[in-house]
Measured scan of single mutants.
Amino acid sequence: THFTSQQLQELEATFQRNHYPDMSTREEIAVWTNLTEARVRVWFKNRRAKWR
């Protein structure tokens, strides 16, 4: 999946605040970024792996 810079900005900003967002937070992010909750969940999983 290719993310727009706007989507990445929103995802990264949320990641800085919370590395493990809950389901409702992921659903909110999905609405803001026009992505599915599953895409958001996978992005956070991959981002945490990169962060370690």
Rank of each mutant, 00 (worst) to 15 (best):
D22T: 10
A13G: 06
P21R: 01
D22M: 05
T1E: 12
E10L: 15
E28V: 09
R39I: 15
N34I: 04
V40G: 00
Q16M: 10
T4G: 04
H2D: 11
T4A: 03
K50Y: 08
T25G: 05
Q9N: 08
R48M: 05
T14N: 15
E27M: 15
L8F: 05
V42P: 00
H19A: 08
Y20G: 01
Y20I: 02
M23H: 12
S5K: 13
I29D: 02
P21D: 01
E28S: 10
N46T: 09
E27W: 09
E10Y: 15
V42L: 14
E37Y: 03
Q16H: 10
K50Q: 13
Q7N: 04
H19I: 05
E28W: 13
F3C: 05
F44C: 00
E10N: 09
E12C: 05
T4K: 04
A13P: 01
N34Y: 05
R52D: 07
W51E: 13
S5N: 11
R17Y: 08
L11Q: 00
K50F: 08
I29W: 02
D22E: 04
R26T: 04
W43Y: 02
T1L: 12
E10D: 11
A38D: 10
H2V: 10
E12V: 04
E12H: 04
R17C: 14
S5L: 13
R17E: 08
V42I: 14
F44E: 00
R41Y: 07
R52C: 11
L11E: 01
R47E: 04
V42A: 14
M23S: 07
W32V: 15
K45P: 00
V31H: 13
S24P: 11
V42T: 12
E12K: 03
F44M: 04
S24I: 12
W32M: 15
E12N: 04
N34A: 07
W32P: 02
W51I: 09
N34K: 09
N46S: 08
E28T: 10
K45L: 08
T14L: 15
V42M: 13
L8A: 06
Q9G: 06
E27N: 12
I29S: 00
A49Y: 07
E27H: 12
R48N: 04
N18M: 07
F15P: 00
F44V: 00
W32S: 15
E28H: 10
F3Q: 02
R17F: 09
L8I: 11
H19M: 13
L11M: 05
K50E: 13
T4I: 03
F44Q: 00
S24L: 11
F3L: 14
W32K: 15
F44S: 00
E28L: 14
K50A: 12
H2F: 11
Q9C: 14
T1W: 14
T1K: 13
W51H: 14
F3T: 04
W51C: 13
A38N: 10
N18Q: 06
E28M: 14
H19D: 02
W32A: 15
T4W: 05
T4L: 05
P21G: 03
R48I: 06
R41P: 00
T33S: 06
R47T: 02
F3A: 03
H19Y: 05
D22I: 05
T33H: 07
T14M: 15
N46Y: 13
I29Y: 02
L11Y: 01
R39S: 14
D22Q: 04
T36H: 03
Q16D: 06
T36D: 08
R48T: 03
T25L: 11
Y20E: 02
W43S: 02
M23W: 10
F3D: 02
N18V: 07
L8W: 11
E10C: 15
K45I: 14
R41V: 04
W51F: 11
V40M: 01
